[in-house]
Design a protein around this nucleic acid. Structure first.
Lengths: 330, 330
DNA sequence: TCCTGCCATGAAATCGATTTCAGCGCAAGA
DNA sequence: TCTTGCGCTGAAATCGATTTCATGGCAGGA
């Protein structure tokens, strides 16, 4: 391994000078800089970040903790975070929590032990963030607020969008709406359910039929498929379904396909997806979550914190775009 | 920051003993282990990995260098790598190269400077891997072979699968096939083109019409869309299209939709996608790349290397699954 | 020409964990 | 009882870069 001492010897300067050439505070005479760079080049010197970090007690790593990167929502968010991070000289450490508090805890431990510069996390109601908060690690929550702590957050207005999308189903002529949403531990699933209920009450004047509301796991589309099947096999089945995230929408669509009741026969709100939907489909109302924007915003906010910003916790709420192709089969 | 010295003082032992409790080679008396653990717990001690790494000259980080995590193929691969890595005590650093050799180079520099334990990379023809190879960083290539070096690789049999899928188009009754594949710098795109050509020759007895072959970027589905439009606006347009990856397939499908020539009117091979295809579609032949399996295999191979395996470079070729729903519109 | 003061430089301490090496205590064998 | 030897322990060196502190050199002002 080539060290600054080797470079120093070759360049005829002291190790301190070599160190200063690589991002030190103190200036170095141009010709010495030249000499050092030349020597470093010849020897193939790469500064050892571990040594630097040990000394400076900081790293250029951002931990990205999401339930599951293979969910396209988080995929795009992660990609966006990585872009902003790289531009600012940070690397991204990827952590899939699978909504499992234990795994999350383990990762938080690794992250602090790693002296990461900051953490971007999509927490759930069971998240134990005390560990990181106590240690003052800069942190930004995405998609959901932090439980029990005041922490920067970038979220979307789920209630409003869920209500609006549900209204569109009613306007399209559907009358009996089912709702498949996520577990109670995930804040967005409750918000979307709430938005859906509001729209139902607005239109029917009464509370929705409880048998039309199901909760399924967010992370596996087969759960969504099962839930949709269950709804559609009711004695009095819904004629449209609100699917609370992209996975659930994918599962629901598959169930509809299997039962030969594809939209527009049965209406669908695909909240936040389905992923890579290719084109507008009659009877499918899609809301697009601003995944990349959430990522870039969160990364930018985190970097502000890393650079020492001390203000109170901030919450940024981003709007949700919507697509309604109508029910016309053309 | 709590260090082993603090813990040592509190537990009434030496720092060396504390270190040994955390994964040291030498055994420690049980009651001292107890005392150390208790003290560590009370003080909230977390070992500083940077110090450890500086000393041991190794890290528990695997760099995952892919063109673009937001491509579902790499997404699933990355997810699989992360699972295997975590189980073995490694973290994953995410690097999007966008097929850009410069960015790749930058990341290789960061990775060596970071003393990463190993690298998993999807290289292209312009990749400069010398840097890492010289330094002996354990490395495994995925999806593509390393240019100019003998390195472990996990790939799929693109030629065979492309030929087989193309055959299915002919069998379905399509006669004039177009092909949209990726840039020449990406090995898989050439292999798939080759497989396609073989099938065309088998069936027609002649070389394919050159105007039916287009190359587009792999990374943006709009390029695929444009290429498909171009093919379909020929005087003598193809009646089926072979799309060389998931992005191209997505773009092609969108073009077909816009031109109101959705399959089965125009046949389609969607090689390696399209992502999250919801269900079988008449006239669309889909090949499924074993994305997760590539990831787990590569991660396992890399970990073997990290643990000191010295054998010659190995290449694992995985099979490709295929789905042909026929052309029947039922 | 001499003095003041800034600027660049090198020597050495430091970050926190690992590891070598020597020593100590204790058990087993003679 | 004495010796041998094993097993555990602590002191101290070490990893490679950063940074403080003291110093030497040089320019500008008197």
């Amino acid at each position: 391994m080539v060290t600054i001492y080797d470079v120093a010897k070759r360049a005829g300067v002291s190790p301190a000078t070599v160190s200063r050439v690589y991002g030190g505070q103190t200036p170095v005479t141009p010709d010495r800089v030249q000499a050092v760079r030349a020597a470093a080049e010849e020897l193939g010197f790469v500064p050892n970040r571990n040594a630097r970090r040990l000394r400076t007690n900081s790293s250029e790593i951002i931990a990205m903790m999401v339930p599951d990167v293979s969910n396209s929502f988080f995929t795009h968010m992660t990609r966006a975070v990585e872009d902003v991070a790289r531009a600012a000289g940070f690397s991204v450490m990827l952590c899939n929590t699978d909504e499992d508090p234990e795994r999350e805890q383990e990762y938080l431990r690794v992250a602090t032990s790693e002296q990461v510069a900051g953490i971007i996390i999509a927490p759930n109601a069971n998240s134990e963030l005390d560990w990181a908060v106590e240690r003052g690690v800069p942190m930004v929550c995405v998609d959901r607020h932090a439980p029990h702590h005041e922490i920067d957050a970038v979220v979307v207005d789920n209630i409003t969008a869920a209500t609006a999308a549900t209204h569109l189903l009613f306007e399209a002529g559907y009358t009996r709406l089912g709702c498949i949403t996520g577990p109670e531990t995930v804040e967005t699933s409750t918000a979307r359910l709430e938005g859906w209920m509001k729209a139902v009450r607005d239109h029917t004047g009464t509370d929705p039929d409880p048998e039309l509301v199901l909760r399924a796991r967010y992370v596996d589309d087969r759960d969504g498929e099962r839930a949709a099947q269950q709804l559609l096999s009711l004695d009095n089945p819904p004629d449209a379904i609100f699917a609370g995230n992209n996975r659930l929408a994918t599962g629901t669509l598959r169930a509809l396909y299997r039962l030969d009741t594809m939209p527009p026969k049965v209406g669908l709100v695909a909240f936040g997806g389905p992923p890579n939907s290719l084109f507008a489909w009659p009877g499918v109302i899609v809301t697009y979550l601003p995944d990349s924007l959430i990522g870039t915003t969160a990364a930018a906010m985190l970097i502000e914190r890393i650079n020492g910003l001390e203000s109170d916790a901030r919450t940024v709420t981003l709007p949700i775009a919507m697509e309604d192709p109508g029910t016309d089969v053309s």
